[in-house]
Amino acid sequence: MTLAEQIREIAAGYPQSRSAVLPALRLAQEQHGWLSPDALREVADALDLTPAYCQSVASFYDMFHMKPVGRHLVEVCTNISCALVGAQQVLEAFESELGVKTGETTADGEVTLRALECAGGCGWGTVVAIDHRYREPVRAEDVPTIVSELHDA
């Protein structure tokens, strides 16, 4: 199935097709790696919206990437519950293991590191999401292993 066909199939599950914007953008992002102008145009065409509209919606949500990102996404929750138990140390461990600052992508384009608002695992902080799979709790000393796993993946 083409992306457009997949999107229309999702849209058929809603009373109004516009409701399928978020799932459609997610699909497009999975296929393109990020929401490039072409990806936005494809979503717009499939749902009979304007590309501008899709850009407006997509840019509202944190999980959509309006710029290219790495093949893997490492997200560290730094909201208060995690921060109280050492999230910053975990984040810094990732920075030094990966050799990037938070918000950046490794030079080989493999990994993007981000800080995240509350991931919803506060009781088991620090929460780290690797490609949206949660690891909890993560301590600074666990980071080298996680990064090497990532490189092997």
Partner: peptide, 20 residues
């Protein structure tokens, strides 16, 4: 109903914009 002029981003970072 031209759908060309939009708000982009969120919160204090919101701006008025067009597609690309």
């Amino acid at each position: 109903e031209d759908g060309q002029l939009i708000a982009e981003n969120r919160g204090a970072a919101s701006v008025i914009a067009t597609f690309q």
